[in-house]
Amino acid sequence: MAVFPPKERIWWNEPIERVELIWIGVAFLWGLFMFGFMITWHFIGQQNLNKEAYRIAPSVYETKVEEFAKKYQVREEQGVPVVKPPAGADVYILGRLWQWWPVLELEKGTSYRIHLSTIDWMHGFSLQPVNINISAYPGYEHVFTLTPTESGEFGIVCNEFCGIGHHTMTGKIYVKDQKQAEVNQRLVAER
């Protein structure tokens, strides 16, 4: 081979092997499908993150959350207010060093407009064991609609590194059952 110069010297003029051509076709179509499926899920799926967000000064956001907590507080747990907003209400969640504040009590099958932001560093909102993970930023108020589909006690942990107390940063959401007929109706409407 070293004796004879290659027949083709310009790589883009060369032929393609058949097996390669078939695989390129399969892989390309698969890529196209995966691309299309992300778009499709916006129409057929119920899990799509809203892009709605507002710039907000952290101190202003903090005040909004405190007002929200005061308005709907039902009891206290470890010094943290437990807040039970009415169905469809705006719900505010605040991340700060090192807690998710306040504790929420929601109803299964009810939709809430969740507001999420932080007042110091970045934090990671991680609802467990459901496993919904959303980044939270200081200065950006992220708004999305959330509908719990199961009842019970759920933890919120922080999964964005936020300093030496990162591993102590938790929060909680209680989800209560309401009358079964009502839930089913709402879930059907929602889907």
Binding site: V157, C158, N159, F161, H166, T168, G171
Partner: peptide
């Protein structure tokens, strides 16, 4: 979570 020292959350208030 990633980058997390203690998955038992032993020091967490909640």
């Amino acid at each position: 979570p990633r980058r997390h020292w203690d998955i038992t959350f032993s020091d967490a208030p909640i």
